[in-house]
């Protein structure tokens, strides 16, 4: 039997060897599917207790990277540690201590909420199973629905169930793959509050997401595109590192204006945000020269700090250029 003691959240310090506090510390993780390299030499470090946002467009390799971390896919290259265990050799140990929430709901739709939780608790051979399942139902507010079959639940409730099930063995590291897709804003907010509560207790999170507001709730961000890690750091770091200049303009017929601006040297992107247009470029003088002819009535211009979204669109455009 493997590891019968209840893994507690505070265990991370003891399992990470030599006291280094990285929950994830991997280098050059690479996965190829035939000709296509889905994840290309990605290195990532996440400290214990941190919430790391994992961003990138669809098909950029987020899911593949996460699957390699928890031993669901064999890496073609790469090395490092996850919770102090070798990410290639010791995936059984890692599985015991990691909670993985799949992108698509993957619990048993023909089992009730309680039966699903009970099954997971049995798989991890948890002592005191009934009590743990009861607490878990309580904690996520699922008690009143515990006999409902999982397949009949709405998106928000399915997500709660998945979260509860992934947490049931008290993992030290949570890998969440687009956990809030298809979940309403209120449920999303509650979800993030729960995540922050757990992180405060010492749990580490790697969360793949598309939502910028969610990215801003993370301690750190990693941005991946076409399988390559483009940037990494705190929200401020990521924005500062992009060295982007952004001007906001409002006025009539913005789509036409955007069209014209995009053709001018120095303008790298012109993106509509509601009734405004965000115009950005990485060469400040060139951008100002480009917009100069339009800085008159009926347009009103102001310079702003670029937001995360401006930066991500910029990064995405740049990686496309690199790729082709």
């Amino acid at each position: 039997m493997t590891n019968q003691e209840t893994p507690t959240i505070s265990m991370h310090a003891e399992s990470a060897d030599g006291g280094d506090a990285f929950a994830i510390d991997v280098r050059d993780m690479t996965k190829r599917f035939g000709e296509r390299t889905a994840v290309d030499h990605v290195s990532l470090k996440v400290r214990a207790g941190e919430i790391c946002g994992f961003l990138g467009p669809n098909g950029s390799g987020k899911t593949t990277f996460i699957r390699m971390l928890c031993g669901l896919l064999r890496a073609d290259e790469g090395s490092g540690k996850c919770l102090g265990y070798d990410v290639i050799e010791e995936s059984e140990e890692i599985k015991l201590r990691v909670g993985y929430m799949t992108q698509r709901f993957s619990f048993w739709e023909d089992l009730s909420i309680e039966e699903n939780l009970d099954f997971v608790a049995r798989m991890y051979a948890l002592p005191n199973r009934r009590e743990i399942v009861r607490q878990s139902l309580d904690r996520l507010g699922l008690t009143s629905r515990k006999d409902q079959v999982a397949g009949e639940l709405s998106g928000g409730w399915k997500q709660r169930l998945a979260l509860a099930a992934c947490l049931i063995h008290r993992p030290q590291l949570m890998l969440l793959d687009e956990p809030t897709a298809g979940v309403d804003p209120k449920a999303r907010r509650e979800f993030w509050e729960e995540i922050h509560r757990l992180a405060a207790e010492g749990m580490t999170f790697l969360i793949a997401t598309h939502y910028m507001d969610e990215a801003e709730r993370c301690h750190r961000l990693a941005f991946i595109s076409y399988g390559k890690l483009l940037t990494e750091g705190t929200v401020e770091d990521v924005i500062a590192e992009a060295r982007l200049t952004t001007w906001v303009v409002d006025g009539p017929e913005l789509p036409k204006l955007a069209e014209q601006l995009r053709n001018r040297a120095g303008v790298e992107q012109a993106v509509a945000f509601g009734n405004e247009l965000h115009v950005s470029g990485s060469d400040e003088p060139a951008l100002e020269a480009a917009i100069a002819p339009y800085r008159k009535e009926p347009y009103r211009w102001r310079r702003v700090e670029p937001g995360l979204e401006d930066v991500f669109i910029h990064l995405m455009n740049r990686s496309e250029d690199n790729f082709s």
Binding site: C70, G71, E92, T102, S106, F107
Partner: peptide, 13 residues
């Protein structure tokens, strides 16, 4: 087919 295999494999089994 239902995608539950991914979940099963992510558990220690």
């Amino acid at each position: 087919e239902r995608g539950t295999m991914e979940n099963l494999l992510s558990m220690p089994t």
